[in-house]
Every structure is written in C-alpha cells, then in structure tokens.
Design a protein around this nucleic acid. Structure first.
Lengths: 194, 194
DNA sequence: TAAGCTTGTTAATGGGCATTAACATCGGCG
DNA sequence: CGCCGATGTTAATGCCCATTAACAAGCTTA
C-alpha cells in the first residue's frame, strides 16, 4: 500500500509534477477537499492515471511530507552546527525563510496535514519535524542559556508561526523586502525579554 | 439556504452547543474531514437532527466565522481607539492573545476555512476580517509613522501568524506564562527595525 | 517484427456523505 | 382532553469519490 508502483525511481519527472500540483491543491483546498480527479486534471491526466505513479492518495501526501521534513532537517542540521549561536540562529532564519518564500504550498501542507498521513509514515514525519524543532531549540538555548526549557520551545513554535504565515499574506512586498522583514521580526521576537 | 429554521433564536443553547462541537471538529479534521454525522454525534444526536437547527453544513461554518469575525472586530475597534498608540497596541495584543488562548479551535477555523463559506457570507466575513486587520495597521502606523504601508500590513499579518500559532503548540506552559511570552514576542517583533 | 513493459483511458464497483422524507414523541395551550 | 409546533429518529435518495478492471497505444528489445 505504501510501495511505489514499478518503474517509479526517485527522479521520475511525472511523479515530481504530480507532487507539485498536489501541493498546490492540498494547500488551497485541504487534503479532503482535493480529489484524485482534481490532482490528475492539474497535470493533464485523468484521475485513475495517478495509480501508475502512486499507490493511492494517501501515498502522495505521505511522500510529500516526508520529502519536506527531510529537506528542512538536513539543511537545518548543517546551519545549527555553526559555532556562534547568534550566527547559527541567523543562518537557520535565512534557511527557513527562503524555504517558506520559495515553497508556500509545501509549508502550508506541512503545517496542516500531518494527521492525514497513514501510520507508518506519520511517525517518521513526526520524528523529522521534532528533530528540526530541536535544532532550533538547541541554538536558542545556547543563545539564551537562562531561559526555562518550556519557554524556549514555545518561543520556537511561535517563531515558526510567524515565519510560516508568509504563504497566507500575499502583500505587495517583493521577495527580498519580505525576507528582510520576516528575519528582523523573528530575530527580535526571539530576543524579547519574556 | 442561509435562513435559520423557525424557532432558532440567537441564544438557542442547542445551536451554541453544536457550534462549539463543530469548531473542535473543523479545527482538528478540517471542514471536509468532519461529516454531519460526526457533528451530530459530538452533541449526542444523529446527523439529520442538525437540520432542525441549521439549514446545512455550510450554514454552520458560515455562522461560526461570522460570529468570530464580529467578536474580534467589535472589541478590536474599542481597543484601537485608545489615544496612545503604544497602549492601543498593547490592548490589541492582550485582546487577541486572550481570544486565541481561550478559543484555540475558533482561531484555527477562522484562519483556515474561509474558502468553504458559501458566497453571500464569505464576503461579509472577508470584510470583517479586513476591517480588523485595518485597525491593527492603523495603530502600528501611528506608532511607526515612517513605515511604508506594505511593510506595516505585512508586519501585522506576520504578527497574527505568531499569535495564532498558539493552538498548535501545546507546550507545558501555563496560560499566564504563555500570554506573557506571546505578548513580549509580538511586541518586539512589531518594533523590529525592518 | 513481435512480445512485453509502461503509461494512459474509459467503464465498473462500492462506500460515504449531505440532504430529504416519513414517521414518532412530547410539552404546552386552546 | 386534543391539537400542534418543536425536536428527534430511522429510511430513502442521489451524488461524489477512491479504487480497481478491462482495454489500448507506443517503445524497447530480442
């Protein structure tokens, strides 16, 4: 049920195309609000054609979330390893902001649809998400050692809320201005005297 | 289609009970992920019983979002009217944070499900939401007159993202600590040099 | 060139769901 | 007492949807 149909190697362009279209639809209408027919139509196919590339609708979502979580964590680990905590935090902010600005649909789905991932994969996604958060928590902890653990964690979550709000704002700001604004706001929020 | 069945005055306890249960379900599973049967069961009824109180599933969502938007705006107007912009901002922050902490499900639905509201009401909700945002924008503009309009608006949206992330974090912090943390983070974010 | 894999398509199939119909109960009020 | 509106319930009804079946066309390759 989770296995990919034959001949579906990692870099299959059709698969990538479907995943991209599905991300837009899931983000805009929610997992339950987008049908298999919608997904197919979005890439110029009929609904059942999807089954040549994925074992089902859930498998599309599962692969999407796994991919996002892995990408976020991989680069997050790299940047969190920077020795100076202030620089590490800035590097993490730059990474997350760039990802959110470049992939608004993915960020939205990643934030909302975990519950619809079937069980073996849901657990893996959860682990990856948690590990990513922990990198941020560790950096913030290095930057502000006195902070209670619960506050550190809550601050990181709130910071994600701020950064991930991007996809839903759509103001007239260009990309660079938006990136700078989010960076400054997040940085100041994390340094607030709470 | 939007009209309420007879005998359904504003303060009908059954209606309120259904709206509360629906908020939880819509927040947890999304509008399309919660069935009429689920809503009924959540208040000890069968599915079709709902039609004695609402004209349909969409009407439940519409009334819910209208109610939220009206409540947010009404009190928002009051607090934004405070003469000193710094005090006005603090008052707005206290209001929004209290609302989000007290009604996490409502905040989530309000943020996500506007697209599923049927058309006459969707427009009204949009107007109310926009008016609420404009109160914040106006206060921030008074506080930081030099800021370009697009930046002010983007900052307010990002601030909402921060505040509304509350329902999805569930850290071990108690209510007062969480309120204080969110207030400090948001206030600092809005004062950041962007 | 012919078998066979890949990738599609259009018809089932079967389940779930929103909504409506038909039927019950019950409390108030004439 | 006897009617009736309010509020429920359990059976349709009809649509949408995920998934599968049956069938076709095109490439690759022996």
């Amino acid at each position: 049920m989770t296995t990919r149909p034959a001949g579906a190697d990692v870099a299959n362009p059709r698969r990538a195309e479907i995943l991209a279209a599905a991300a837009e639809l899931f983000a805009r209408r929610g997992y339950h609000g987008a049908s298999i027919g919608d997904l197919g139509r979005a890439v110029g196919l009929t609904g059942p054609a999807l089954y040549r590339h994925f074992s089902g609708k859930e498998a599309v979502l599962a692969e999407m979330l796994l991919d996002i979580s892995e990408r976020l964590l991989a680069e997050g680990l790299r940047r969190a390893a920077i020795a100076d905590p202030g620089q590490a935090l800035d590097a993490l902010l730059r990474w997350h902001i760039a990802f959110a600005l470049d992939n608004p649909a993915l960020i939205t789905v990643h934030e909302r649809e975990l519950d619809n991932v079937p069980e073996p994969e849901r657990h893996r996604v959860r682990r990856l998400q948690r590990a990513y958060v922990e990198e941020w928590v560790a950096v913030l902890h290095r930057l502000r050692p006195g902070l209670p653990d619960g506050s550190t964690r809550a601050a990181v979550h709130a910071c994600f809320g701020l950064l991930n709000s991007t996809p839903r704002s759509a103001t007239g700001l260009d990309r660079e201005a938006m990136a700078g604004l989010l960076h400054a706001m997040a940085r100041n929020a994390l340094e607030a005297p709470f």
